[in-house]
């Protein structure tokens, strides 16, 4: 038993965090919103400089751990780049995305001409991106893709087996969400220590302490589940989808409460773009809602557990193995 992420992964993530800080941290995302054309090159260069391009999470458990830690570092600064998708690119350099059944909606979809997409029901396709991003406040970079005419590559079957990269993609996205929520707690800690009201830092108020303590426990729990899920993807690949759905569901739940609380602790500053917390919360929305939000994810999880069971000290599901 060893619940600790391999030190190579942690070190790699620390290097990545430095590289992202050199881009200006959350400012890179702000710039991307202001000047949508510029950012891709600077982020790609930063990722290349740390060797992220050579990383393939499908290679071995260590690569998977490094990819996860990298996604966490990216989530902490709302890196304006589809990292999970590009880590899972194919030999044609096409990134991978899990998409809703309805609209094939992908965050940062416009950065690549072609994508490999899959839905939960097993439809795989090559998709083209030629639409402009939504440009909305909650999904500025979200782009709708469409099926690439004439593509026969990797078609999959409706109702067929899930795509082999699906669980990994969900897991890496959850690590991104973990990065955002963890950073949100750090930002709130900094804020409440510095913000004086009623003659003292608001950190001195017990209700503030309790709120932060709850957030911190929630993030710690999510981190453990995220590590456990990495291990399970390799140790029990047959349960990959169930475990990844469980992680995604929990990540969304934790993000919802932690982001709400940490934003609240910022007062009005929390809704203001000059503060990192506001940008993080806006820009993580696509990860929380694509390919499915909490309820759809939970419904899919419940179904997966009913069919395949759930790891624990006792068997679960109507037909335990």
């Amino acid at each position: 038993m060893n619940p600790v992420l391999p030190s190579e992964a942690t070190e790699f993530a620390a290097t990545a965090a430095k590289a992202f800080a050199a881009l200006g941290g959350v400012d890179a995302a702000r710039r991307a919103e202001e000047e949508p054309t510029r950012r891709s090159a600077e982020v790609v260069a930063a990722l290349a400089a740390i060797g992220a391009e050579d990383l393939d999470p499908r290679d071995n458990p260590d690569s998977l751990a490094a990819a996860a830690a990298l996604c966490e570092a990216a989530g902490a600064v709302a890196l304006p780049f589809p990292l999970a998708g590009t880590l899972l690119r194919d030999s044609h350099q096409r990134p991978f995305a899990v998409v809703p059944e309805g609209i094939w909606r992908v965050d940062h979809g416009h950065l690549f001409p072609h994508w490999r997409v899959t839905s939960l029901t097993g439809v795989h396709a090559i998709a083209a991106s030629d639409a402009t991003p939504l440009g909305s406040r909650l999904g500025p970079f979200v782009t709708d893709l469409h099926a690439l005419a004439g593509s026969t590559d990797d078609p999959g079957e409706p109702g067929g087996a899930p795509h082999p990269d699906l669980a990994t993609h969900l897991t890496l996205t959850a690590w991104h969400i973990l990065g955002t929520t963890g950073r949100a707690v750090e930002l709130a800690v900094e804020h409440v220590l510095g913000r004086v009201q009623f003659g003292k830092p608001i950190a001195a108020f017990q209700s503030v302490q309790f709120q932060l303590a709850d957030c911190s426990v929630a993030v710690a729990g999510l981190r453990e589940l995220a590590c456990f899920t990495l291990w399970r993807l390799t140790a029990a690949p047959e349960d990959a989808l169930t475990d990844a759905l469980a992680l995604r569901m929990h990540a969304i739940d934790v993000a919802r409460t932690v982001l709400r609380t940490t934003q609240q602790l910022h007062g009005a500053a929390g809704v203001c773009d000059e503060y990192d917390i506001c940008v993080l919360i806006r820009l993580v929305q696509p990860a929380l809602r694509l390919p499915w939000g909490a309820e759809r994810t939970t419904a899919a999880l419940a179904e997966a557990i009913a069919r395949h069971g759930f790891e624990g000290l006792f068997p679960h599901g109507p037909a335990p193995r």
Binding site: G135, W292, A294
Partner: peptide, 12 residues
């Protein structure tokens, strides 16, 4: 937002 799913991100 949950009910309209992926379209929750849409404005306009």
């Amino acid at each position: 937002c949950q009910a309209v799913e992926e379209r929750a991100l849409d404005a306009g």
